[in-house]
Design a protein around this nucleic acid. Sequence first.
DNA 1: CTGTATCCTTGGCGATACTG
DNA 2: CAGTATCGCCAAGGATACAG
Lengths: 119, 119
Amino acid sequence: MAIKRRKSNVPPPPKECSVTMCMQLLGGAWTPNIIWYLRSAPRRFSELMADIPGVSPKVFTARLKKLEQSGILIRRVMPTSPPTVEYSLTDLGQELTPAIEAIVQVGHKLKRRGAVSME
Amino acid sequence: MAIKRRKSNVPPPPKECSVTMCMQLLGGAWTPNIIWYLRSAPRRFSELMADIPGVSPKVFTARLKKLEQSGILIRRVMPTSPPTVEYSLTDLGQELTPAIEAIVQVGHKLKRRGAVSME
DNA sequence: CTGTATCCTTGGCGATACTG
DNA sequence: CAGTATCGCCAAGGATACAG
């Protein structure tokens, strides 16, 4: 609670703040992968967990919730006997896929060059 | 973020890791703005600092250094009497601008919707 | 199956002061 | 002008266990 970082009284620039805002979303752990895997078809919670190994359910839930609140994806609870939840991208979420694909392109070149250590 | 992490013996997927790697770069604080301001013309250290208010020189140097090491931008020291340093995007860095522009697009919609608090 | 609840660690980021 | 040097914080992530 409380006190949200003070840094000074900087009025953020009008345009670039959108970048920052969006990066807050995309920059979160696993976020690009989630969108990547959802871009062609809806997917269930455990399917996504399997797609993206190494993520704990807590973090995963947190990400999904934030993305849902931002209007990037939709959470649909199916009334089946073992509860099933399906996640799918919204229109706005779909608009992110070209951005991610552009990033993938550069990522590949980066890797090919060995420019980033990756570990 | 978490790339390094031991977490078990997960072989990372071959394609998505590029996204993650690239996001490590772009996700750093101020990074998108740096590229944004450099995309049309080279710029000096203090000019960039002025463009992007609220960043401390330490962090700024760290970012610039990492981007230079990754081959995203080039640092040129001009042999003037007060030392002058000019930063400019490499070809690879230029390839990032469409990605950032795509992100800007979504960022605007996000803001218009009030989907993200931005605070 | 789909998540919460707890606890803990890390490193990214910020502020300020100082140097070549 | 263009950076280091120090110091410290704290929120994002992770591990594990438990719950509806």
